[in-house]
């Protein structure tokens, strides 16, 4: 009984804190302002990442930056009020799917990273990046 009461108090306390956080509007959804910022974030995260071809989603939520050597692609995705980064190498992409309005959905072999959609300016750019990402589906091993 005592345990149940403690648990109920905890759940009540957590709910009150989360609701306060929500109603205070403390969350500020993040976005990637431009490709320069995306490159700076990559360089900061992976010291010395040599940025090559790059693209920023129309909604500024996702960016893709290829390493000059072509060995990997940096994927940046806005999450909450921050940005989460993944380095895509052969074997790390599970699937890509072209959608309407030049959208491309990327699913990784990484259960800690939800699928993200990138909105391209046109279909040809979407196809070019889909090809690059599809090359990251097969493992070299």
């Amino acid at each position: 009984m005592e345990i149940a009461i403690k648990l109920l108090i905890s759940i009540f306390g957590v709910s009150a804190m989360v609701l306060t956080c929500h109603f205070f509007k403390l969350s500020r959804p993040s976005s990637i302002s431009d490709l320069d910022e995306a490159k700076r974030l990559l360089d900061q995260d992976s010291v010395g990442f040599q940025s090559g071809a790059s693209v920023l989603s129309r909604d500024r939520a996702v960016a893709l930056i290829e390493q000059v050597s072509g060995d990997s692609i940096g994927l940046l995705a806005a999450m909450g009020d921050g940005v989460v980064i993944r380095y895509l190498t052969p074997g790390s992409v599970k699937a890509t799917r072209m959608g309407e309005n030049s959208d491309l959905t990327i699913q990784l072999r990484d259960f800690t990273f939800r699928p993200v959609s990138i909105k391209f300016d046109d279909n040809s750019a979407a196809r070019t990046w889909a090809d690059k990402l599809n090359r990251m589906q097969e493992s070299q091993a």
Partner: peptide, 18 residues
């Protein structure tokens, strides 16, 4: 700096730890 879903996750981890 706070983010609602992040705070929820942290607090849920706290309850789970208890």
């Amino acid at each position: 700096r706070f983010e609602t879903r992040d705070s929820f996750a942290s607090l849920a981890m706290g309850v789970g730890n208890n």
